[in-house]
Design a protein around this nucleic acid. Structure first.
Length: 114
DNA sequence: CTGTTGACGCTCT
DNA sequence: TAGAGCGCCAACA
């Protein structure tokens, strides 16, 4: 067992999300056996350096809504990054075709098999 | 030690 | 469609 910091484990999983795909806070939380709030809390405290190497923008709320939009600049940055890699975001801040681009169960195939 | 605070999610009105 | 209420639990003052 490796009692690594919660932050470290969350970032490791977020880093697994492939290009043009997204994941929800809840899905990541269930994978790590923590609540969705904890995932959100970690991402909310990312440093500038971490934000550059971690695809935090591929993490959205349940149903595919971009929940950072209420934060103004951060929300616009997330939508911009998503669109840059071809993920369509509608005017209601929702990821189009959410069901098909969402990272689903069984797709977590990290290199760290064990 | 206690209380507050959330990039959330689900259920019930 | 919108809102309220609650669970969640690490981090922080």
């Amino acid at each position: 067992m490796r009692p690594r910091p919660l932050k470290e484990r969350v970032l490791a999983v977020v880093a697994l999300i492939r290009d043009r795909r997204i994941a929800t806070y809840g899905a990541i939380g269930r994978y790590l056996r923590i609540s969705a709030r904890q995932v959100a809390f970690v991402l909310a405290r990312l440093t500038v350096g971490e934000a550059e190497i971690i695809p935090w923008f591929r993490v959205v709320a349940a149903k595919g809504f971009v929940s950072t939009t209420k934060l103004g600049a951060v929300g616009r940055r997330q939508i911009a990054r998503l669109r840059q890699e071809g993920v369509l975001v509608t005017g209601r801040n929702r990821v189009a075709e959410f069901a098909t681009v969402a990272w689903g169960p069984g797709e977590w195939k990290p290199v760290t098999e064990r």
